[in-house]
Nucleic acid binder design. Structure first.
Ligand SMILES: [Mn+2]
Length: 488
DNA sequence: ATCCTGTAGTA
DNA sequence: TACTAC
DNA sequence: GGAT
């Protein structure tokens, strides 16, 4: 892999120079020159970065901010060293109690709606999740015999210790013991597990006297109006959708959809190259997946404007048509969004055409399927976004923010420094995920590494699965369902 | 006190 | 606004 | 909940 010659390895050693402050400027310019320091527009390719224009005059204040952020980049989750310590499976009673605490906190988060920012309870719940991770990676022994000193040595705060000892003594922390969880709260937890039902609709349904998911199904027979059609369709497959998809079945689903994308290419745009592959947790190499995410682009659109949404919409419709309906021997069991063909408006959006639905292979469970069709110029940003994970994306976007940029699934834009929250036009073109990391001044992370809280063992297992499966599929000359790990 | 793990699509 | 995607 |  050519990138290792001048990529991450050297970046590491440069960081050390940077800390000492000796040759900061040259280090900075060499490692991620252009957009950062010179405020130029450029074009990144596999082999480097080329300037294609100037955005604005240099702003000393802005550049200083960018440098500060860069020097702190290792604090961002998307740049943490890959893989946490191996997990142990002791102290399960404490972990269960902490999970009950998280449930109580999340109940409160669900009560607070209509606000832009996440409430304090949300972050408390996140920190409690991190405490569980800390316990799992704190050594293979029971903690009830640890002294305060031992806890401290392993990096637990005084508050951590208090909570753990409280749980050891009473079975639950104070918050859980003194919070009365009313029956309606438990019903809401159940109802929000249905696709399309969030805290607000769950609230509504409880007020209407719904007592469980089965009860909701019963009431729907009498009054079909109480939830939308899409929720009704999701509800039909509720039990199947609660289960995770084994990786081998996810691969079969991905193969089916990618094949359909190539069929659609022959119909929509004969002779042109189509790229279709799985993203999401499947691309990160996870052993099972909540759903299957497929990313599609047609390279013939390279010559067409990015706002030609209708091309992508029509291509998506053709893929869906090729997949067919389950009740006619096909693949799709239900749509959760309207297909583009149902809207015949001309649309000049630069965004993806999106499908969310439910699919089913013969003798298998119903599964959630997402398909997104992007313009090829956005493919690198789209695959970065669509591969996740959630935390990794948010962390990278946060880093971009602090550099004065805004990162999305479509590109990088410059935030306007006119005091408002407004955002400028897209400033860069990146043709690979690696180029996006480079552009932002971040060290590259492989898809299987993009889970900031995963254990080292899990990361290695994911990597091994991806390498093995790529070999096997190549040997059997099966249709590729992931980007080539050596070319992209 | 305030921030933290963001941005965009569909309905 | 609510819910969803990662 | 923890850092600033
Ligand atoms: Mn998905």
């Amino acid at each position: 892999m050519k990138h290792t010659e001048d990529g991450p390895v050297q970046m590491q050693s440069r960081m050390i120079d940077l800390e000492s402050g000796s040759s900061f400027h040259s280090v900075y310019e060499q490692s991620f020159t252009h957009a950062s320091l010179e405020s130029q527009i450029h074009l990144s390719s596999e082999n480097g970065t080329k300037v294609i224009g100037i955005v604005d005059t240099k702003n000393a204040c802005e550049l200083a901010k960018r440098k500060r952020t860069f020097s702190k980049r290792n604090e961002f989750a998307c740049q943490w060293p890959v893989g946490n310590r191996e997990l142990n499976y002791r102290n399960q009673d404490i972990i269960n109690a902490l999970e009950r605490k998280i449930e109580v906190l999340n109940d409160r988060v669900g009560e607070i709606r209509g606000t832009k920012k996440q409430p304090q309870e949300y972050w408390r719940a996140q920190k409690t999740k991190m405490l569980i991770q800390k316990i799992k990676s704190s050594g293979d022994e029971n903690m009830n015999k640890w002294s305060q000193v031992e806890f401290r040595e392993k990096g637990f705060t005084q508050n951590n210790i208090n909570v753990i000892q409280e749980i050891l003594k009473n079975g639950d922390c104070e918050l859980v013991r003194y919070t009365h969880i009313c029956p309606s709260q438990k019903i809401k937890r159940q109802l929000t597990k249905v696709w399309g039902i969030g805290p607000a609709r769950a609230d509504d349904l409880v007020k209407q006297g719904i007592t469980s998911i089965d009860n909701l199904k019963e009431k729907l027979k009498v009054d079909p109006e109480i939830v939308s059609d899409r929720v009704k369709r999701a509800l039909l497959h509720y039990d199947d959708l609660q289960t995770r998809i084994p990786r081998d079945e996810a691969a079969l689903i991905a193969t089916t959809v990618c094949q359909a994308a190539h069929v659609a290419a022959r119909r929509c745009s004969p002779g042109s190259k189509v790229t279709a592959f799985a993203a999401g947790s499947f691309r990160r190499g996870k052993i099972d997946c909540g759903d299957v995410d497929i990313l599609v682009t047609c390279h013939a659109w390279e010559k067409i404007h990015v706002q030609s949404y209708n091309n992508r919409a029509h291509f998506l419709d053709t893929i869906l048509e090729s997949l067919g309906e389950v009740n006619q021997g096909g693949f799709l069991a239900a749509d959760l969004v309207e297909r583009p063909c149902t809207k015949r408006k001309i649309n000049f959006s630069d965004g993806p055409a999106t499908y969310m639905g439910i699919c089913q292979l013969p003798n298998k469970k119903a599964r959630r399927l997402d398909i997104k069709v992007y313009h090829p110029s956005q493919l690198a940003f789209a695959m970065l976004y669509f591969s996740g994970n959630d935390y990794f994306n948010r962390s990278m976007r946060s880093f971009a923010n602090k550099c004065g940029w805004s990162l999305s699934d479509k590109g990088i834009r410059k935030r306007l420094d006119d005091g408002t929250d407004s955002i400028g036009p897209y400033i860069t073109e990146c043709r690979s995920e690696r180029a996006i990391f480079e552009q932002l001044g971040l060290e590259y992370r492989e898809p299987y590494e993009r889970d900031p809280t995963a254990s080292f063992v899990d990361i290695e297992a994911a990597h091994a699965r991806l390498v093995y499966e790529a070999q096997e599929r190549r040997k059997a000359s099966e249709l590729p369902i992931l980007p080539d790990i050596y070319t992209l």
